Amino acid sequence: MLLAGGLARRMGGGDKPMRTIGGRTILERVIARLSPQCSGLILNANGDPARFAAFGLHVVADDVPGFPGPLAGILAALDWTATNRPEIEWVLSAAGDCPFLPRDLVARLHDARARENAQLAVAASGKQSHPVIGLWRVALRNELRHALVVEDLRKIDRWTARYPLATVTWPAEPLDPFFNANTVEDISEAERLAALDEAS
């Protein structure tokens, strides 16, 4: 599941995943990275879903009002999966503005989760955790809804702290696979990194 529900305030609004790097949108790059790793992809985005029609993905909006953040997008994906793909137990979430995601992301998260008997798994690089990029158990969706709606909990790491959690770390050099384009300056840096990525 790709999270594209943010407000992109630091870029002056609009959809960050639709910005272009090296002639391709960030979203195209994310889809190309994750499609071989997943049995299907959906996109979490609010507003008119038609703007993403060219990508051919199911677009799922938050159903918790007030832009409560990425946990609402994760909940929307878990609910959609429970209804439409009930055979699936685990959902990967990834930020829609991370163009260089690891090609072994899903495999390594699953391996760590199974090895550590964890309920959740998240990615890290260097010394920084990336809780938006993780593996979520569909069976936890009602507990997540309660945390969001009843407890007004917003921070991902406060919720994940309630469960056995596996953290998988990737090297941040020469290219951080979880680099995300938050600002106009980041887009320029991403152009430079795209050349490195394609050379690797």
Rank of each mutant, 00 (worst) to 15 (best):
M1I: 03
A4D: 01
A4V: 11
A4E: 00
G6Y: 10
L7D: 06
R10G: 01
R10L: 14
M11A: 13
M11G: 14
G12E: 09
G12Y: 13
D15S: 08
D15M: 03
K16G: 00
K16W: 00
P17G: 04
P17T: 07
M18Y: 02
I21H: 00
I26V: 15
L27M: 13
V30R: 03
I31W: 08
A32S: 15
R33A: 15
L34C: 08
L34S: 06
S35D: 14
P36R: 01
Q37G: 11
C38Q: 10
C38L: 15
G40A: 05
G40R: 11
I42N: 01
L43E: 04
L43I: 09
L43G: 09
L43F: 04
N44P: 01
D48M: 02
P49H: 07
A50I: 04
A50H: 14
A50P: 07
R51D: 00
F52S: 09
A53L: 04
L57W: 00
L57E: 04
L57V: 06
V59E: 11
V59I: 14
V60H: 05
A61G: 09
A61I: 03
D62R: 02
D62S: 05
D62P: 07
D63A: 13
V64L: 09
P65K: 10
G66N: 10
P68V: 15
G73C: 03
A77R: 00
A77W: 10
L78M: 08
T81M: 00
A82N: 10
R85M: 11
E87H: 11
I88Y: 02
E89Q: 14
W90S: 05
V91A: 11
L92M: 05
L92C: 12
S93C: 10
A95T: 13
G96A: 06
L101T: 01
L101Q: 05
L101V: 09
V106D: 00
V106H: 01
L109S: 06
D111Q: 15
A114Q: 14
A121M: 02
V122N: 12
A124D: 03
A124F: 02
A124C: 08
G126D: 08
K127T: 10
Q128F: 12
H130Q: 08
H130P: 03
H130F: 15
I133D: 02
G134W: 05
W136G: 13
W136Y: 10
R137W: 09
L140G: 03
L144N: 11
R145S: 11
H146V: 12
A147C: 06
L148R: 11
V149F: 02
V150M: 12
I156L: 14
D157S: 14
T160Q: 01
T160W: 00
T160P: 00
L165H: 09
T167G: 00
T169V: 12
P171E: 02
P171Y: 02
P171W: 02
A172P: 00
P174T: 14
P177A: 08
F178L: 04
A181V: 15
T183M: 01
E185I: 12
E185S: 15
D186E: 12
S188G: 12
S188K: 15
A190P: 05
R192D: 06
L193W: 05
L193G: 05
L193T: 05
L193A: 05
L193F: 10
A194L: 11
A195Y: 14
A195L: 15
A195W: 13
L196W: 13
D197V: 11
S200N: 09
